[in-house]
């Protein structure tokens, strides 16, 4: 398979496995009496396993499913490291707006006293 296409698939599966694993950990460790995480956690685990199987079949260097999950997680985190600065630039834009905003004084605040 084309190496660029393979790289794209690794990034997609990497992001998918990373986000699913993070959500599973989040659901388990923020458990409270109103949450019902059983079905989402089981289905997401199955999807992680299937994705790892696909990555394992695409990459000959990977011997086990665990290796495929490690490899995909690294690809996902590396991709995420590239995304974070873009998210920060967006946040900095909103910070810039918040820093220099000017609001008129609300007379209602005076009236309440």
């Amino acid at each position: 398979m084309n190496s660029l296409l393979l790289e794209i698939l690794y990034y997609i599966f990497g992001g998918f496995i990373l986000a699913n694993l993070s959500l599973i950990i989040f659901q388990l460790f923020s458990l409270h009496p109103y949450s019902k995480p059983t079905i989402p956690v089981v289905v997401q685990s199955i999807f992680i396993f299937i994705s790892a199987l696909v990555v394992n079949s695409l990459n000959d260097d990977l011997e086990t499913i665990a290796d495929a999950i490690r490899f995909s997680l690294v690809e996902g985190i590396l991709g995420f490291i590239v995304i974070i600065p873009f998210l920060y630039i967006l946040m900095i834009y909103f910070l810039f707006k918040a820093s220099f905003r000017k609001r008129h004084f609300d007379d209602l605040l005076d009236a309440s006293e």
């Binding site: 794209i8 990034y11 992001g15 986000a19 959500l23 996902g76 991709g79 995420f80 995304i83």
Partner: peptide
């Protein structure tokens, strides 16, 4: 490519 397709994977997961 890394940023776009990782974001795609994350969006699919969400």
């Amino acid at each position: 490519i890394g940023a776009i397709f990782t974001a795609l994977g994350v969006i699919l997961s969400l």
